[in-house]
């Protein structure tokens, strides 16, 4: 038999709760704060977007030596006769176009596998005015205006077209000079 003090214990009893790990609220805060920081950082730093080739040509005097991302579509695919080893470095010469405006490009390294005529590319680099690394080279179907874009990173901006007549479509959009014009 329990004694009197034990008989009616009506004091609030601590319920044994299912304890969640103590680090969980901290993790929640970290994750949400992380998402917010990434979003803010992204919005602040993403003010620079790809500059289409036609706009890049218009503003090349103002651009100076500044690195930026240039958007355009290769006018032709790259053949072996467009690649040169100069002072131990491999350079590839090609031209890109946007809205009918051509830009000559010198790329350090080999273009990626998906580099192809009519497939838009994003080139990271800067404007150069003057002789090419191979001074005798003449761009086939290129601008050949004394300016060239020096790049060391090529990203392929594949379009959403999975049909067979991709080239014809790119010509219609003005991203490539029409076959009859070149």
């Amino acid at each position: 038999m329990p004694d009197d003090n034990q008989a009616m214990d009506l004091s609030p009893r601590r319920q044994e709760s299912k304890k969640s790990p103590q680090w969980l609220p901290a993790l929640t805060v970290i994750v949400i704060a992380g998402a917010v920081i990434i979003l803010v950082w992204f919005l602040v730093t993403n003010s620079q977007s790809f500059l289409p080739a036609d706009e890049a040509v218009e503003s090349r005097l103002e651009m100076g030596e500044r690195r930026f991302q240039l958007l355009g579509s290769p006018v032709t695919n790259v053949d072996d006769d467009q690649t040169f080893i100069i002072d131990g470095n491999e350079y590839t010469f090609f031209s890109v176009s946007f809205d009918g405006i051509l830009v000559d490009v010198v790329s350090q390294g080999t273009p990626p596998d998906l580099f192809d005529e009519g497939i838009p590319v994003v080139l990271e680099g800067k404007w150069v005015q003057g002789p090419l690394p191979n001074p005798l080279y003449v761009f086939e179907n290129g601008a050949n205006d004394g300016w060239w874009f020096a790049t060391n990173r090529i990203l392929v901006k594949h379009d959403n077209d999975y049909r067979e007549d991709r080239i014809g479509d790119a010509e219609e959009r003005g991203q490539l000079p029409k076959a009859s014009e070149s």
Binding site: V31, D113, L114, V156
Partner: peptide, 30 residues
Amino acid sequence: PTWNTWWEWGDVRLVTTLVLFLMLLGYLAL
């Protein structure tokens, strides 16, 4: 194989999708 990069931090679609993922993680942690 397509873009020539696994990830681009300046890419709006990629980063907004990552933020969506982190927000879902935060929702479930909450």
